[in-house]
């Protein structure tokens, strides 16, 4: 599904350069549930942005489903993000001026779907995350956990195969956090590839495989033993 070969992301080339990714190679198969852990500033988000085609590497190759994306242009990347990737961010990143339903519809608008179909799929996705009846609320009328669930619905609505979650529980209390994690496990069980980014090893144990990263380098990659 995903293959990264010797990837570098270097900021401020020259004086006091920052190597956010320092020679990362990685393979993630279809329907895996992987967590990426590491302390703050270790390069987790940078790696996730690379996997999600939001960012382009300074050096190295990246393949999704066998096609190289590291050389693609802006608009081609946008299309891959739209069709193959669903993002879940720590800060939800919903559009405050749109309703819940409109937020969830947004990826489908950019996919070019007709209105009726969009409505239908968006409502279905909201139902799945348990937010029926909230379609016409604004994000700021919802709790943090509910907002994150809207974000999950938005990530799922276009039926991408790869779900990327960057500290999805970082802004939530442990109980709602656990609900969100439960949801990610379900998404994985339905056949999606899930990549979870966190600095918390306990949360990382939800995944079946844990990759530790430090100063832009992978230093361990192992199966998680269930308790």
């Amino acid at each position: 599904m995903i293959r990264i070969e010797n990837m570098y992301k270097i900021y401020n080339m020259g004086d006091n350069e920052v190597r956010a990714l320092d020679g990362v190679s990685l393979h993630i198969g279809a329907n895996e549930f992987v967590s990426i852990v590491g302390p703050s500033g270790s390069g987790k988000s940078t790696l996730m942005n690379m996997i999600g085609c939001l960012d382009t590497p300074t050096e190295g190759k990246y393949y999704i489903d066998g096609t190289e994306v590291s050389q693609m242009r802006d608009d081609q990347l946008a299309e891959i993000r739209n069709r193959k990737v669903g993002f879940i961010f720590q800060s939800y990143n919903l559009l405050g001026r749109l309703t819940v339903l409109e937020n969830v519809e947004l990826p489908l608008i950019y996919a070019g779907l007709a209105k009726n179909e969009r409505r239908h799929l968006a409502k279905e996705a909201l139902k799945k995350v348990g937010l029926e009846g909230r379609e016409h609320h604004r994000p700021n009328q919802l709790s943090g956990g509910q907002q994150q669930r809207v974000a999950i619905a938005r990530a799922l609505v276009n039926k991408p195969s790869l779900i990327l979650a960057d500290e999805p529980t970082g802004a939530l209390d442990s109980k709602t956090g656990e609900e969100i994690m439960q949801m990610l496990r379900e998404i994985h069980q339905e056949g999606n590839t899930v990549v979870l980014i966190t600095h918390d090893k306990e949360i990382a144990k939800n995944a079946k495989r844990m990759i530790s990263i430090h100063d832009g380098k992978i230093f361990s990659d192992c199966e998680v033993k269930y308790a």
């Binding site: 939001l54 739209n82 069709r83 993002f87 990143n93 919903l94 559009l95 950019y110 996919a111």
Partner: peptide, 11 residues
């Protein structure tokens, strides 16, 4: 940024 992340093209 959000719109681009979920697949908006330049156009």
């Amino acid at each position: 940024g959000i719109r681009k992340a979920i697949g908006a093209r330049r156009r």
